[in-house]
Design a protein around this nucleic acid. Structure first.
Lengths: 308, 308
DNA sequence: GGGTGCTCACAAGGTTAGGTTGTGAGGGTG
DNA sequence: CACCCTCACAACCTAACCTTGTGAGCACCC
């Protein structure tokens, strides 16, 4: 299905570092490999692209225009990889004694990795030791339990109600968007606006009962006559794939389909008369502010983009 | 600087396919490797994460909750990788006889790969043979020359003027955003709005003279007293890095900093009284519509998201 | 002029990751 | 009960990749 001639992640990283340092050897040292290895890696990549990416001279190397182009594309891949890395690092429970947090699935999936990467680079830029984070991803209810039991210092939850005994701060919102595949009638430019009634009466692709998105959707459409779902799937990825293939409309978290919308794999449809916004909060126990130290820094960073 | 424990791209892809097919063996077949190889790969990944990702049973495999999480993150990496792949494929000139296009750098960097991936999956979904595209990336002026000389069937350019003798269609806009590092005074929530005069009087990080973004910026600020730039750099990546490190504000194409804004590496500042929008057009020679066939399809797809 | 240090490239050798084939165990199904 | 499906263990092979050793071109500086 994909990836016939994509270079290795390490190779992409090397290219980016070469762009920054202006020298194959310097880049090699920075990545902890020999100059010869770097040279050979770049040559392999050039064979892959079919054009020179690096203009070598006897005193340094610059990127060719083609190289610049590839670096831009590589940057996006590496940014995503960095978030993946941060997420995996947080899942590993081996580093004990650092900041322990718990988060609902939506937040853990789409927001936390970005926050961790952002906070980390911010701290590194200020010369601080980056905070090591251990994360547990589970549903909102269990997150509040963990915070209340003191097993984690900080939680991230969705939903309108403030959990009992916990302080909270808004860190973002997630809006459910109604999307269809590019071949669906609603994807026509003139029809990208439907009423809540029409939506409720249309067979949708939905998540399984009990999931967060399903609950929000059901609550929003509670008063209207509903059609039976055309498909019920157990992961957001499956829903996205089904909708893209034309199975029918679905309501999905905005963060989950950001890229699909940008590439046109899915098309957004505006629904009039419906509020599908979820509020995302950081929660903690004790005083009006999060616990001193890394927890407070993380909340401050996460709340950065939200209207507090 | 990065990537201590990120799995291989192929391993990520495998995990995604396992999620979709529900079986290690089926996923292995789809990727053209043996079932044993797939099994071993997944085990390697699990060792990396420290937790099981796949729940194996005697009749199929499902993802664990942790696995779902990793798949979400992996999806984003793979999406970016797919765009990189499409870009590299288009740079290779070896497939002759297919659709030849030329594009300005901004469009080639940030929009074309997405369009190519989107168009391709759209065509595959409809059972069509995907269009093979060969791309040349260069500046706007040269793009129009190539189209006028008939060396490429289609061009993508920026700028307000319609090139002589060419027809065009709007395919998108790129807005220049003013951004600062998270430590900059303007990044304070209360100060994220400055006047055009203030901006002009502030030493900025800029691209080299003659570049598209620089030209747009100079034109927009032409009537105001200007401070000398604090840094002049020759690539967008370098500008982003300098701004993130706190060198000063800069104006950068919105597409180039989408991810930086999402992760908080950069902060957007609103400038009052300034229009920094660039219009992006597809251009071609001849009739009022693009040449029949793949060229027309690509333009239609690209124009999909733009107000025509 | 001749050192010194930087750049990158070529060549030979070793290690290891990743693949394949062969085999086996456990569970559902005709 | 036989067959087919699932996944896992083991042995062997290949090929990619990295390292060390070496050489050549250019620039700076005494």
């Amino acid at each position: 299905m994909l990836a016939p001639h994509v270079p290795d992640l390490r190779a992409l990283e090397l290219l980016v570092v070469v762009a920054r340092t202006g020298s194959l050897g310097a880049a090699a040292t920075e990545l902890g490999i020999s100059q010869q290895a770097a040279s050979s890696r770049v040559r392999t990549m050039e064979a892959l692209v079919g054009e020179p990416l690096v203009a070598r001279s006897k005193r340094g190397s610059e990127l060719t225009p083609t190289g610049e182009l590839v670096v831009q594309w590589a940057d996006r891949v590496l940014d995503a990889a960095q978030e993946l890395d941060a997420g995996i690092a947080a899942l590993r429970a081996d580093r004990r004694g650092h900041l322990a947090i718990a988060a609902s699935l939506t937040i853990a999936e789409h927001l936390l990795p970005g926050w961790m990467v952002g906070l980390r680079t911010h701290q590194v830029q200020r010369g601080q030791q980056p905070t090591e984070i251990t994360m547990t991803a589970t549903n909102t209810e269990r997150v509040t339990e963990l915070v209340q039991a003191g097993e984690v210092a900080l939680g991230f939850v969705e939903g309108p109600e403030a959990p009992r005994g916990l302080r909270r701060r808004l860190v973002g919102t997630d809006e459910l968007l109604v999307v269809v595949g590019p071949g669906h009638p609603w994807a026509q430019r003139s029809r990208r606006r439907v009423s809540a009634e029409t939506l409720a009466a249309t067979p949708l692709v939905v998540r399984e009962a009990g999931s967060g998105t399903r609950t929000v959707l059901e609550r929003a459409l509670a008063d209207l006559p509903r059609a039976t779902p055309v498909l019920e799937l157990s992961s957001t990825a499956a829903v996205r794939a089904a909708v893209a293939a034309g199975a029918g409309p679905a309501a999905v978290g905005a963060h989950a389909v950001r890229d699909d919308l940008a590439t046109g794999r899915l098309v957004r449809v505006t629904v009039t008369g419906l509020d599908l916004t979820r509020h995302l909060h950081a929660v903690w126990m004790g005083g009006p502010h999060p616990p001193e130290g890394p927890a407070r820094e993380l909340v401050a960073w996460a709340a950065r983009g939200a209207r507090s």
